[in-house]
Design a protein around this nucleic acid. Structure first.
Lengths: 248, 248
DNA sequence: TATAGTTGTCTATATCAATAGACGAATTTC
DNA sequence: GAAATTCGTCTATTGATATAGACAACTATA
């Protein structure tokens, strides 16, 4: 659709094979390379991108490793089906319900939890004093066995004492908050950015180095506007897109 | 704030010096390295990231080239001030008003325009038949002389004939739509993703290769819900963050 | 079965990326 | 003025990246 010719840059800190791999991923996302069909042969790709066949092979090898492509000697290299999940963000953003219909199974896995003093930023967001105790949860969102998010969440430790146990049992923030008398809550604000995945993201989200993560920083509030949760979530850009609904 | 130890990955298609450069940028964004102060000396940075001093120097050289840092022999390397713009997205998303208060000057520059048949995707979004003529505008958002967005926008050619001239004159979508009797409009939907900048983005947004762009795909509608505009916008992640307001 | 088309493997070469060490040049501090 | 600190430049070495060419292995098709 947009289809602006975007060529390859050299000597820029990003190796050619990774740039080619990214272009192939883009091509799959944009529909240039259809799923379950063969990619153009290596020689054609090399010509198309103006690089050597071996460089294309390096890119393909990386994508085979990532599970995006499957190479078959003598036949061709095939695009495996891999749809991006579309994660809705709005006033009623919730992990599980947001992915309904796109996956058969999803839940939040609690990786670890701890209690720590609130940093200035978290204290401001939660309307508590700096240094007050907050509970920090490290979670991974999983859908059909694939990691789709990696989040760090903070709650006021006084008000939500023991929420880590509720999370571990239920695998759901919404269900855990119900135990503290909160039957409904709203997304107050979301700030969005993107960066390269760091080592923690790579491990938790099963990504290859150089991958991009979408980062959201959000505050959830009760219906009265009282802040209850501060969270930073990372989504693998190659597997997830964020859908913002106006009327939500 | 989150402060998870994120170390450096080797042999991954992204060179160490670019990874270090990205980490320094992150450090500036997160406040670890304050603006208008000196960075830790090269040897300290090399130790901190576990690489050779020369590798750190390569990273610094790239950031000096980008205008983020300034090195002074004998004194140190200094962080120049460069705050991320915070671009609000909601039902009333508009380029100019959204940045009010953060910049003294901003406008949309029209790079080029053309008329073309609507692709399936654009036809669906604008509720017209596939192949109908649409006007395509290529624009660059500028704030205080810096490029902050690069967008491709489509309008129904029948209804908005000549809108490219209005855009060129006014430098504003909102003002241009007024000439066609549209005094107000709403953001109907936004889909958000991220990827590495392509060659066109690099040139238009004055980025270094390897940079990340945030991508939004949006549909604007009249108050009656009639779609009038389809747009794909790219924002440099290192200079812009997107702020999503729930009540907007 | 023969041929064309495609991926897989091998060798060789040139350039880039990263490390290592030494020393020069400019600035600040004592 | 001397010393310490810090950035700038140079040489050398190693491993990763990229190109080039040749040929083997496998598949599909005429």
């Amino acid at each position: 659709m947009v289809g602006l010719a975007s060529s390859i840059e050299r000597r820029n800190g990003v190796s050619l094979w990774r740039q080619i791999a990214d272009k192939i991923l883009q091509g799959i996302a944009s529909g240039d390379f259809a799923e379950n069909t063969a990619l153009p042969p290596e020689i054609a790709l090399a010509e198309r991108y103006g690089v050597n066949r071996h460089t294309v092979r390096s890119a393909i090898a990386a994508l085979v490793q990532e599970g995006v492509l499957k190479a078959e000697q003598g036949r061709g290299t095939f695009v495996l089906s891999r749809k991006r999940l579309s994660y809705p963000i709005g006033a009623r953003t919730r992990f599980s319900t947001g992915l309904q219909g796109q996956t058969s199974e999803r839940h939040l896995a609690l990786l670890s939890s701890s209690t720590e003093p609130a940093s200035r930023r978290i204290a401001e967001a939660l309307h508590i004093a700096k240094g007050e105790a907050v509970i920090r949860l490290e979670t991974r969102g999983e859908a059909d066995g694939h990691a789709v998010s990696r989040a760090t969440t903070w709650f006021d430790a006084k008000r939500f004492a023991g929420i880590e146990h509720a999370m571990a049992e239920t695998g759901s923030i919404t269900a855990s908050l119900k135990r503290f008398g909160i039957n409904d809550y709203l997304r107050h604000s979301t700030v969005l950015s993107a960066r390269h995945a760091d080592a923690d993201d790579l491990a938790a989200l099963d990504l290859q180095p150089g991958a991009i993560v979408l980062v959201t920083i959000a505050v959830n509030v009760t219906l009265d506007g009282e802040p209850i949760q501060f969270a930073e979530s990372r989504f693998p850009a190659e597997r997830v897109e964020l859908r913002l609904s106006a009327g939500d």
